[in-house]
Amino acid sequence: MLPELLQGVDAGGLIVIQDCAGYSGRRLLQSFISAALNRDETVHVIGFEVSEEELIGGLKGSSTQRLHFHDAFTDPLGWTDHPAFTVRQFNLDEVTHLVKQTSLPKAPTLVIDSLSWILRHVSPAAVCKTLQQLRKGGAVRAVIGLLHTDMHQRGTVGSLCHLATSVITVAPGMKGDEAVAKITKRSKSGKVMLDEEIFHIREDLAVIVQSKASHTGHKQPDPSEKETDPTANLTFNLRLSDTEREAKKKLALPFVFSKEKKTALLHSVPGSGRILYEPDANDDFDQEDPDDDLDV
């Protein structure tokens, strides 16, 4: 699924690359930039965490003429008189004005490096609102953002991932040049697809998927994680033996009548007792007034 995402992001798509301190997702972000440039797309990058030289330095061999870097790394908070781009400018109007400064035949791809830097100074609700407006506004074709999950609360990460059409969570692999990508992709119909792949990135930023992570072998169970039996130390037995189970099946319950018992109760047999009542003369029972004999 990772090569499929690199081949092109659907219009209105939002890809979130999640990383942590153990493995950086920036090189995979550069692979997405390189793949978009190789498809003759225009890419706008808002860079908060690395300089333009560091970002473009890893894009050797790609057509960087269509790459527009907006420097938010030098002065992200606007402390100088003429900042290039500040974190407070991350809203629909400012970003739309930024990408429309270059005359383009079609909407470009917007790359944000990184969303974590913005979330440190802007509320998560405002960031999600801006991302949703950018997706639907038409000024950009798609949005790709890097997110450092270990810097935020779980609710913040969950909100951004719920908004995204694809989430790629990267982690270190078993070997030095390998990494594991857990991918969640949501189609327009609402179908959710999950995948997990082992990959590595070449010097030219091409992503090579080596295998599915599920094919790496079965995890050996940890002896310390064995499930404990809660009935092991009880002073009484909760289980039945085979003999006790058979005796239980043969036991007649007190309120369950057999066919013979039902027949005996419903039909009288010779010698059974009956109560006969014959009214005498003092029994003046009036059908019209059953209470006539009462002194009321």
Results as ranks from 00 to 15, higher is better:
residue 4 E to F: 08
residue 172 P to E: 06
residue 23 Y to P: 00
residue 84 A to W: 05
residue 4 E to C: 04
residue 249 K to I: 10
residue 60 K to E: 13
residue 26 R to K: 12
residue 223 P to N: 01
residue 75 D to V: 00
residue 80 T to S: 15
residue 88 R to D: 15
residue 13 G to N: 04
residue 20 C to V: 03
residue 79 W to D: 10
residue 93 D to R: 09
residue 55 L to I: 10
residue 222 D to F: 01
residue 103 S to R: 13
residue 75 D to L: 03
residue 177 D to K: 14
residue 32 F to C: 05
residue 108 P to V: 00
residue 46 I to N: 02
residue 66 R to S: 12
residue 103 S to W: 03
residue 205 L to A: 05
residue 125 A to I: 13
residue 15 I to K: 00
residue 150 D to F: 00
residue 215 H to F: 08
residue 148 H to A: 07
residue 16 V to Q: 01
residue 198 I to L: 12
residue 58 G to S: 10
residue 147 L to A: 02
residue 253 L to Q: 12
residue 192 V to M: 13
residue 236 F to E: 04
residue 250 K to Q: 15
residue 69 F to L: 11
residue 99 V to Y: 02
residue 54 E to M: 13
residue 62 S to D: 05
residue 139 A to Y: 04
residue 190 G to I: 10
residue 133 Q to C: 10
residue 100 K to C: 08
residue 174 M to V: 09
residue 78 G to C: 06
residue 258 S to E: 10
residue 83 P to C: 04
residue 244 E to Y: 02
residue 110 L to V: 05
residue 26 R to T: 10
residue 10 D to S: 14
residue 288 E to Y: 08
residue 51 S to Q: 10
residue 201 I to D: 01
residue 151 M to C: 08
residue 242 D to G: 06
residue 269 V to W: 11
residue 82 H to G: 04
residue 282 N to M: 09
residue 60 K to N: 12
residue 96 T to D: 09
residue 247 A to I: 07
residue 77 L to W: 12
residue 45 V to H: 02
residue 248 K to L: 15
residue 217 G to R: 05
residue 150 D to H: 01
residue 235 T to F: 09
residue 236 F to V: 08
residue 160 L to A: 04
residue 111 V to D: 02
